[in-house]
Amino acid sequence: MHEITDCNEAGARTDATMVVMSIFIAAFMLIAWTTDPVYQGVSVDDRAPPIEGKIFKNNVWMEWSLEDQLDETWISGSAYGTWHMIEFMDIYCGHCQSAAPEVRDQYNNWRATDLPGEQEIEFVAVSIALWQGDPSRDYSRENIESFRNDSGQTFPYIDDLDNSNRDVWAIPGTPTYFLIAPNGQIVYASPEAAGGETVYEAMNRIIMTQDVA
């Protein structure tokens, strides 16, 4: 005959807990050992969120997607593949206007630099609308082209006047810079740059030290 005690009743629940927890932990360890996820985000080491839209490149507007430019088989340290320097900017932002000549010069310098291995670097400006709805500011593709031409820049500009990419990237202000590795991983983000490191310094530090072997 069973003795009915609190100990017996607690024992049933404890036994069940042990069984369930053991199975849960075993399953969790299996997942931890067999997968290596990289979550999408806008911080360093995250996988870059998508950037999509019309891009002004070679004097025409065409469809463009960052995802299409990536090589997900690329491994960190490999001296091949295309890096992307992404600048989120606004054509009416004073800081962006001030930075435009430097971005132009850096682009020209980097295009002229012989990068280790078979690496390439692309600059892409994403033109967002910080003051959307303000009648005193005319956000249009024509004005994006004018800004680009007036700055003497030749790299492509993306029309993000509906702020769709800005919202996905949660851009706090402009200009904001990101360096994207060939596999889509963010390796530099200006909002969290340590010691005030610029994107160009980060490019020097990262791209120029890839393993050529």
Binding site: I23, A27, L30, I31, T34, T35, D36, P37, V38, Y39, Q40, R47, E72, T73, W74, N183, G184, Q185
Partner: peptide, 20 residues
Amino acid sequence: GFTVSVHTLWIHNKSKEMGA
């Protein structure tokens, strides 16, 4: 239900791997 959930999480994580 538990094992299929484990498999779903595994697929989720695999899809988040670089080169997956």
